[in-house]
Design a protein around this nucleic acid. Sequence first.
DNA 1: TTAAAAACTGGTTAAAAATACAGGTACTGG
DNA 2: CCAGTACCTGTATTTTTAACCAGTTTTTAA
Lengths: 227, 227
Amino acid sequence: MQFAVKLTARQQQILDLIQSAIARTGAPPTRAEIANELGFKSANAAEEHLQALARKGVIELVSGTSRGIRLKGDALRSLNETRHREGGQFSLSLPGMSQLALPLIGRVAAGSPILAQEHVDQTYYVENTLFQRQPDYLLKVRGMSMRDAGIMDGDLLAVQATKEARNGQIVVARLGDEVTVKRLKRNKLVIELHAENPDYPTIVVQPGEPFEIEGLAVGLIRNTMLM
Amino acid sequence: MQFAVKLTARQQQILDLIQSAIARTGAPPTRAEIANELGFKSANAAEEHLQALARKGVIELVSGTSRGIRLKGDALRSLNETRHREGGQFSLSLPGMSQLALPLIGRVAAGSPILAQEHVDQTYYVENTLFQRQPDYLLKVRGMSMRDAGIMDGDLLAVQATKEARNGQIVVARLGDEVTVKRLKRNKLVIELHAENPDYPTIVVQPGEPFEIEGLAVGLIRNTMLM
DNA sequence: TTAAAAACTGGTTAAAAATACAGGTACTGG
DNA sequence: CCAGTACCTGTATTTTTAACCAGTTTTTAA
């Protein structure tokens, strides 16, 4: 029987981060990357955590090499389990794996969450580096309200499920029961959703009205070009 | 596997080395390490091999990151098989996907064939059922001449390399040295190439003029939507 | 047979990354 | 209460690394 090495909560967090970085990118993180992900202002904080983990025998530090972090024993084993487990249905994140499973969302029923199972028509596999930010699903666009932004009826909008969006970005928004794709403009408290087609009105959301950003448009796929 | 990407013996050797480095150390090698292991006196030799592998879509190079080499497609799969054989417990089974290797063509130099090696920036893998007809390459669109068809500057047009196109379809055409994307209209002997933007003129090809259909637009990918 | 591509040498430069040092705060076991 | 440890900022320095440029030789394919 081995020693159950006791890690502090923070150290466990660091270890998890290393494992997830390897699973995601195929290589261990740098000190700066760790610091960045956990919000440290100094890479030295990461360095000290790594040394603590090394002292406890969970990892090994290869001196003088970039990304020279090696998982040892249990930590390595649990990485492989993670790999196995995450190979499930939706986001398939394997070591350096460049494939992304994107469920195609057809019509969103009023009131129900976008990623509800019943909305999924099928799943496409694309490379995760295809888009600048990693999308979570494809949304089939209805109507021509974003025509002048080059988003046409039937296009598949690659959407990252996030509530964070900057001014001027194209978002998937929910207004009460309705889900819509528009360009976001924010002025202090007033939120405007602009169509990119003069035939469609701009929606002004007053404070207090039911409104939520469901996702950010990160890309687009058109598979209906033939006539 | 559908697409057997053809590697030179040396390139295969480099790829093997990358795989073995990952299996051994847990991280991809640096240029210097590759050069060292293979006896190159300059790291640049390794760099060039890596770029060749990236162009062929076997790996992906993450710019500005140390050890930023990611295996793609088959290369990754065979690494995992290795892991499986060596490590025991870890097995990887992906949903039976047929992947398509699509070279991304950036700028086409005047007079040279589209699929010339020097035009290939990188290779993306997508599912072959994503588009209705199977594309052969992605062409990066320049300019706004097809704006009203929803094809914007910077978009990646999925093109099937064929000379067969029906009236009204969007084609990649070559007029002498120039390669252009337009909508095809044929009237008896006169061929017209219509821009989808009133600011751009329609090109009328007289019989005898140098003209060729290089391919048919079967789909579109936009990966630059964020601001 | 000739031009292009592959496969290198050799060097440079800027950025990325490791790592050390000098602090500071908060908690924890004795 | 006090030392030790965990946890962090901030700065600095050196090494590692990516990435570019200018060449040369060999191989390959029109």
